[in-house]
Write a protein that binds this DNA or RNA. Structure first.
Lengths: 381, 381
DNA sequence: CGCCTTTCTTTGTCGCTGTCAATTAAGTCG
DNA sequence: CGACTTAATTGACAGCGACAAAGAAAGGCG
């Protein structure tokens, strides 16, 4: 799955005959998408002819991924293995579609300079995205409705362009290049300002019949809970989203705090902060258990601003930079306890994993969508 | 999708060339699985050569479906279109695996008599079923663990045998032969003793990584709600399952009632019954909204003992037979209101449909699984 | 050292599917 | 009747993959 394997191993993994592999591999070697490493495979000690390892020539085709928000554009240049070769951030001046298309075009031109191998673009946008047509049906943050973003960027750049919802793009990245490798059932939950989610079921990303899916943020946790922006009470997001947490702290007399301050207060034992973040953790855990119960998810990845961006959270609670938005570490035990309590039967076997998230990861997800498209459409049209 | 179509129509629907259809259809005509009706297709008024309609010869291959419970076996004889040709019910004397296999063998022999076209069997069992291997991993009601039911029945009867979880079997029947025809996203919710659910996502039935999926009965509705047998409080099933409803009525001083009595009381305006069933309806509606929010289900079918078995509920509330278990009609407005309230954005576009359910439908679902297996495996081995 | 065994890889042959582009079939309409 | 229209069939061909035999590249061993 990493792209390094002997032909025999490929035959075994794919269920095809060695002969079929030879024939499938040859043209790809010729165009340079694969190449043989000098390595002789399973090292020493074995009899017989040593296997020659073939691997993807990751630099043969480069892609650009862009995460589009109303404030900034995050762009990355990736190779076929979705390794980030270059990255750039651009503030958004004007978030009308034409202006964004213009800025994306410039950003792409910049990343593309000196890299003629760039062949496709992936764009990640929050909201209701129709990946098939490349249209952004509705994006609240950008205040867009039915924008043919894919077509426009493809026309301006001359590159094949894929558009996808941002969380689903992140899931795609994780599924092919992250912890989700080889899994056919995966849920990716983002915890931060909002509580988002993208789902992989039976090896396929769930898009939802009406463009809506994975709305774990609006799972009910407490009918007497705080009011959510969706109009209901007690949604996961109303309890565990940043705004909800700050609101409840303000009600307890702690106005004007940042989420990092709340986490710090909780770490130092302040009862209101401890209670509010415990409630938030239970809400997230309940949402995750609901996913596990309904879908039988094999693996659940939690990520988002609340997790932070460095691999291991600093457990000492000191030396943390000002404005740090991490609060998940405080919530985590409550998340897990609520999950274990509410997961039904063997649904509790789902593995929960934390994954720090940097902003480039969103862009990398977009790039992963572009790679996926390139790989699946290769050879056609 | 009903099996009646001209070759041209098939070509359009499948995306294949007319020529490919001709070649695909011919051998099936020869073995008698398809046949040409004399009809000339799109009736009058059109130019050109009239199309000849081909249709499945439903009687060419018959299947037997059996729903296995700890009390009774329900068996049906179906044709390839899953129309029920014969049905039989047998009380279960002894629910140990060997005894059940024995009874299934007898039941099959009875339905099979005089029908040499019978070629496969479908078995529907509640609990954790591994459809791939035909093993019943765990069935609480039958108190079975890891029973190789498929193998045993296949050996005894000499017929290809498919085993599936009962609710998923019902979904399969609905998906191919019921309201779900042509849909790629469907949720089937059963309301009665328990609250069950099976899900179709991206055209595939969700089995869950650990054999658990669709547990909408254990979605949280109210953290202060009644205790559920799963150990938590306020699950949908604890509030809207038959046992939960009766329990709450008993707490209000109405002990010893049946579910039909509760419904009748509610219809006559008795406040406790009205409240208890309204709570139940809201719980079901919340569960359904959760499915819609997470999966973007296109269509939701509600069925189960609570719906009753005749096509249209008798609205006058009189002349109902004693012991009628229908209570859903009282719950329905609350279900819909809760659904509309909690469905997020366009997830509310999901169509909700009621479907009366007779016990033979369960068996027919099992038959549908057998037909599905026959169709997909036809031509191999 | 040369031959044997083992394992990986390639290649020739074949069948299956499905496309493409005629060709044939069966109607309607003027 | 002949032009037109749509349906169905057919032959030629291409792609994919199975199967089996052959070739290649090692190590072991007499």
């Amino acid at each position: 799955m990493t792209g390094d394997a002997s032909r025999t191993a490929l035959a075994r993994d794919t269920g095809l005959t060695p002969g079929a592999i030879t024939r499938a591999v040859r043209p790809l070697l010729e165009v340079g998408l694969l190449h043989e490493t000098g390595d002789r495979a399973p090292a020493e000690g074995t009899l017989g002819r040593p296997a020659t390892v073939v691997t993807v020539q990751a630099e043969a085709h480069l892609v650009i991924g862009v995460k589009v928000t109303a404030d900034e554009l995050f762009g990355v240049l990736c190779d076929l293995r979705c390794r980030v070769l270059d990255e750039v951030t651009v503030p958004v001046r004007d978030h009308r579609p034409e202006a964004i298309v213009e800025q994306i075009t410039d950003l792409v031109a910049g990343l593309r300079a000196g890299h003629p191998e760039v062949g496709s673009i992936g764009l990640a946008v929050s909201g209701d995205v129709d990946a098939a047509s490349g249209h952004v049906a509705y994006s609240p943050f950008l205040t867009w409705r039915d924008v043919p973003l894919g077509e426009q960027v493809a026309e301006r750049t001359g590159l094949a362009t894929t558009v996808e919802n941002d969380v689903r793009a992140l899931l795609t990245g994780e599924r092919w290049y992250g912890v989700g490798r080889g899994l056919s059932s995966l849920a990716l939950v983002t915890v931060g300002t909002g509580i988002g989610c993208a789902l992989l079921v039976n090896g396929q990303v769930v898009h939802g019949s009406f463009g809506v899916a994975g709305e774990v943020g609006h799972v009910l946790v407490d009918p007497d809970g705080p009011l959510c922006h969706c109009g209901n009470r007690g949604c996961v997001e109303a309890i565990a989203g940043t705004a909800g947490i700050l609101e409840r702290m303000a009600q307890a007399g702690f106005g004007g705090l940042g989420i990092g301050d709340v986490a710090d207060l909780a770490r130092s034992g302040q009862p209101d902060a401890v209670r509010v973040l415990a409630d938030a953790g239970r809400a997230v855990g309940t949402g995750i258990a609901t996913i596990a119960n309904l879908l039988g998810a094999q693996h659940i990845v939690i990520t988002g601003e609340a997790i932070g961006s460095s691999p291991a959270p600093d457990d000492r609670g000191e030396g943390r930079p000002a404005g740090d938005e991490r609060d998940y570490d405080v919530m985590d035990p409550h998340v897990r306890r609520a999950f274990e309590q509410r997961a039904f039967g063997s649904a509790a076997s789902a593995a929960i994993e934390l994954r720090p998230l940097r902003f480039v990861d969103w862009a990398r997800g977009a790039a992963a969508c572009a790679v996926e498209d390139f790989v699946t459409h290769y050879g056609r049209s």
